[in-house]
Amino acid sequence: MQRTYEVMFIVRPDMPEEEQEKLITTLESSVTGSGGTLKNVERMGKRRMAYVVRKFQDGIYVLMTLEGPGAMVHELERRLRVTEPVIKFITVRVDEEQKRLAKIKAIRESRAKRPAPAPAPAAESGAAAEAPAATA
């Protein structure tokens, strides 16, 4: 069962760049090893957290979009939990939401297509009503 997930995690702010890269590549290999694919990695950079986590005020946020089975998420979360520099993470399933969004978009497009020819005659009648008033 292929599903789409978003995994966001925060690493400690004093982690060097190359170690972050190393961490991301190891996570990627764990994802591909358990039958998933890493679609996108977004490094959101260092930002202030809303509250103190493990005595850190800031954190480096990383967002990964991936596709794969639930077992992949289990494995990934286990890895994140045992990785020392990762201070927080969250997994959100997004495929249902994307499906819903696509449906709404389709409905909106079909609606936008239908009433398009309707305003034209209405505008004409309005002009016709105006014309006698102007001549009178």
Binding site: A50, V52, I90
Partner: peptide, 15 residues
């Protein structure tokens, strides 16, 4: 609630 969990929003005011 998700945003609170990942420290994007506070659970309570300023600490």
């Amino acid at each position: 609630k998700q945003a609170r969990n990942i420290a994007l929003l506070p659970f309570s005011g300023r600490h």
